[in-house]
Nucleic acid binder design. Structure first.
Ligand SMILES: [Mn+2]
Ligand SMILES: [Mn+2]
Ligand SMILES: [Mn+2]
Ligand SMILES: [Mn+2]
Lengths: 227, 227
DNA sequence: TAATAAATTTAGATTTGTCTAAAAAATATT
DNA sequence: AATATTTTTTAGACAAATCTAAATTTATTA
């Protein structure tokens, strides 16, 4: 009886970047548009159309002209494998190599395409099987499963309820620079002392330090879990 | 007064692989032939010619039709940076992730193309600034300098003189498999008990274990330094 | 519903890296 | 020196990924 051998299909870095981008976009809207993809990948709609046709023949996504695109389960599997690598490497860079959490994204963007399966598993073990990356995003395990943290937007946290920052809503240098300056990071415990309805700014207190005010925009970029 | 900004030219993975291959080949013969390059890069002579023309315009090498090729100092600098990354990653894989020394070459072949300067320097520090990779090859420092170990071929070691294995002459799986079976690695201390002129095999003794014989081919693939 | 605007796809080029087959140059052999 | 062999280069083509400009489809608005 002969076992069937699946040739472990491999994909170009470009193809992987498309798959990952579709994966992230379809978290929000179920189906992803050509223009949105072109925008996040910094390319042109025409190029996206070409690539979608190709990825369709590789059975990574379902696509009909003018109807947008969704990943197949094969495509999701690939996306999760890339996300897993991306976040494991970010964890490595911050926790082993002492990178700042705002410096790791670009590097991980390259490292996520290293193909060795064994490398990923050994790296995971070396890091102690972390479940969240330095930005608070969950790291898929080797089967593609990831924990969903029940997190709420800081703006929705009730006054005087202690909570812990567990994720950020963006990874822009600008946001991370601001957080560094205010000394807020993943794991920071805080509570809201007052909400101002005029500009929706909020006054928060971290540990036993004096309270200070943060803007609506900043509060919306922070996710917390109550503790 | 305006400082001159050098755009940090960047090169494709293919270009980097060419530069590294030329670097290694020109260690032996001063100038490198089109055919030799085609052979080590598993490509065709015609492709090599095309690439040499391109790399010449990028000033990484000097090349005249039919005359072979040499790296410029720019080219050497790039080659050393790639070799540095390759060997640092190999060290990481073996000493931090518990890879076998015969499993790391392929993975390092990919990792050596990750571009972040900061990553290399932080990795180097994390590893404790190692000077030799798991195969005994020297790791260039951040300025491209590397230690030259005064090493001799095992076949030339005098009888009864204790020496330490410090490098292997090839990284073929076959060789590394044999070494693993015989329990010989970088750092193994041994001495020659007898040389047989019939087939140039030699009898060696490792530590206090019983002596055993190794072939001429194996002896020639091992480099030692006397201790 | 008809006209207009926006999103998407096609057509046709371009760049990079590769290939085969044929021509040209350098070496080796008689 | 003439011939044969090997090495290297050129010529022409191809696949991947991209682009601009034009055509087409879908969505919006009057
Ligand atoms: Mn990427
Ligand atoms: Mn992250
Ligand atoms: Mn390589
Ligand atoms: Mn090595």
């Amino acid at each position: 009886m002969s076992k069937k051998y699946f040739k472990p299909m491999s994909f170009s870095i470009t193809e992987e970047n498309y798959i990952k981008a579709i994966f992230h976009l379809q978290q929000e809207e179920g189906t992803v548009s050509t223009n949105d993809l072109a925008s996040v990948l910094s390319t042109r709609a025409a190029s996206v159309t070409d690539m979608l046709k190709k990825l369709k023949t590789k059975k990574l996504l379902s696509y009909e002209k003018y109807k947008g695109v969704r990943l197949t389960s094969e495509g999701k599997k690939l996306a999760l494998a890339i996300v897993r690598k991306h976040r494991l490497w970010e964890y490595f860079l911050v926790n082993k190599l002492q990178f700042g959490w705002d410096e790791v994204h670009e590097v991980a963007e390259e490292l996520e395409h290293i193909t060795s399966r064994k490398l990923v598993e050994k790296l995971d073990a070396f890091l102690g099987f972390p479940r969240f990356d330095p930005h608070g995003d969950p790291i898929p395990d080797s089967h593609g499963k990831m924990l969903v943290q029940q997190q709420i937007n800081l703006i929705d946290l009730p006054v005087n309820k202690t909570a812990e920052v567990c994720a950020v809503g963006s990874q822009s240098t600008e946001l991370l620079e601001l957080l560094r300056h205010k000394n807020i990071g993943i794991g920071t415990k805080l509570e809201i002392k007052k909400k101002f309805s005029f500009d929706h700014s909020i006054e928060i207190r971290v540990r036993n330090q004096p309270a200070f005010t943060i803007s609506q925009q900043l509060a919306q970029a922070l996710f917390v879990k109550t503790v």
